[in-house]
């Protein structure tokens, strides 16, 4: 684990060992303390033609128009809801607005409401061997109580999104034989 990631975990530990995380498929992604979060339950996503695959569309929040990131696609996770992309007006999902101090706000779609978790033990359960299965903005992972936790470098993710850097953003395509090792669900989704 890199020094930076350790710092991230230590930071979480310093703040009472508790951190918020949200669920995506089987994975639980931790939210850094520096990120402001807002849960949106009634927002509608509107599709933008010709936008990259990792964008679900745009949504409006208090007059701001924010992009909705298809984070499931980035991580190769099958979505819980089989929402109709072509008729997104009729579908309302649980969205999470993320605001990093160095970037404008954006929105991701999640599979469940964020919850608090004790991460004091995560550092001791960190796994480095599975990191190759994630996009580069996932900096570390840990498995604890049969739950998979992922530590994301949001600045890295947001930067790659702004740069439209597909290599950095999207989960690498795994060889067929390795799929059973992947902690996340579907590889078939990941065809950037």
């Amino acid at each position: 684990m890199k020094k930076e990631d350790k710092k991230q975990q230590t930071e979480a530990t310093d703040k009472g060992n508790m951190a918020f995380c949200y669920q995506l498929g089987m994975a639980n992604i931790l939210i850094n303390h520096e990120i402001e979060v807002e849960i949106l339950t009634t927002s509608i996503t509107y599709q933008i033609p010709h936008s990259p695959q990792w964008y679900r569309g745009m949504t409006s929040l208090r007059g701001d128009i924010l992009p909705v990131i298809n984070i499931h696609f980035l991580l190769g996770i099958k979505q819980k809801h089989n929402d109709k992309v072509q008729n997104s007006n009729s579908t309302k999902q649980t969205l999470l607005k993320l605001k990093h101090p160095d970037f404008p706000a954006l929105v991701i779609m999640i599979d469940g409401l964020p919850y608090q978790t004790d991460i004091s033990e995560l550092a001791t359960h960190s796994m480095t061997n599975t990191l190759k299965a994630y996009p580069s903005w996932i900096k570390s992972s840990a498995e604890c109580n049969n739950k998979l936790y992922l530590f994301a470098n949001y600045a890295h993710l947001f930067n790659a999104l702004q740069q439209n850097d597909q290599e950095q953003l999207v989960m690498p395509i795994m060889p067929t034989s390795n799929t059973e090792k992947s902690p996340l669900i579907s590889q078939s989704q990941c065809k950037p």
């Binding site: 509608i44 509107y46 933008i48 033609p49 010709h50 936008s51 990259p52 964008y55 569309g57 745009m58 949504t59 409006s60 007059g63 128009i65 992009p67 007006n89 404008p104 954006l106 999104l161 702004q162 439209n164």
Partner: peptide, 28 residues
Amino acid sequence: KTLKPWMTKIQGVNGVCLLQDGVVAPIL
């Protein structure tokens, strides 16, 4: 409203607008 900085050079889309009924429409 511009799509920048997240989406740049989206072919055929100049930006988006918020309509009176709250719908977000792409400006082609």
